[in-house]
């Protein structure tokens, strides 16, 4: 096409582009707004460094499914006659570089186990302080009156380990979740599970490192 004819045509039709281009100008002006996202959905942020909500959900789901499938559904759970088994939460060691609240994993497991009606969790036995101080005080009073409190049938312990690697601009972090269920008083592991979550990203990526 002749360049002169093309320029004339462009001049005559340029007004048609206005309604298309005008909204594009406003996109850049929009201020970022905070939005709520479903923590159980797939839209929460994922970073290489640190354990994100999706990672806690993933690890907890693996642990709970394994407990149900390999321990409860396999008929290995031993409980007192007509009663649910009593579980006490022992130490969950944090071997990562960041401070984390292990309840993000353990509480989900406690809830899932209590929903099976086959296991109850003690809130008055715990490492580094009990979950319910008033219940602990009442239990102490009951013991003075000669009422012997229930002893746990199982304890839950574990470890969260972090392993990092770097190759050029790519960074990788692996988080290993290890849990053990110990039979009391025998002191042998009745169930064990491990889940590793590995994440990769580059330093330059937004919200990745």
């Amino acid at each position: 096409m002749n360049p002169l004819i093309f320029m004339k045509l462009l001049r005559k039709t340029s007004w048609l582009l206005l309604p298309v281009c005008a909204p594009l100008c406003f996109i850049g002006c929009a201020t970022p707004q905070a939005t709520r996202v479903d923590s159980a959905g797939g839209r929460s942020l994922t970073t290489v460094r640190g354990i994100n909500m999706q990672d806690w959900n993933d690890a907890a789901d693996t642990m709970i499914n394994s407990l149900r499938e390999n321990f409860i559904n396999a008929g290995k759970l031993q409980a007192p006659e007509g009663k649910p088994a009593l579980l006490a939460i022992s130490r969950i060691v944090n071997n990562t570089g960041t401070q984390i609240d292990t309840d993000l994993l353990v509480k989900k497991i406690q809830i899932a186990l209590s929903r099976t009606d086959k296991v109850v969790t003690s809130t008055t036995i715990g490492v580094g302080g009990v979950a319910d101080v008033i219940a602990e005080e009442e239990k102490r009073r009951a013991r003075l009156l000669g009422v012997e409190p229930s002893r746990p049938n199982y304890t839950l312990s574990g470890k969260i380990i972090e392993q990092t690697a770097r190759a050029g601009n790519v960074r990788e972090a692996s988080y290993v979740f290890q849990l053990s269920l110990t039979k009391i008083p025998e002191g042998v592991a009745a169930w064990e599970e491990e889940r590793t979550i590995t994440k990769q990203g580059t330093r330059g990526s937004v919200g990745v490192w």
């Binding site: 159980a40 797939g42 999706q54 959900n57 993933d58 907890a60 709970i64 989900k108 809830i111």
Partner: peptide, 11 residues
Amino acid sequence: VIGTPTSAFLP
């Protein structure tokens, strides 16, 4: 529906 603590989308 039975609610569970891990009723979340898993990648």
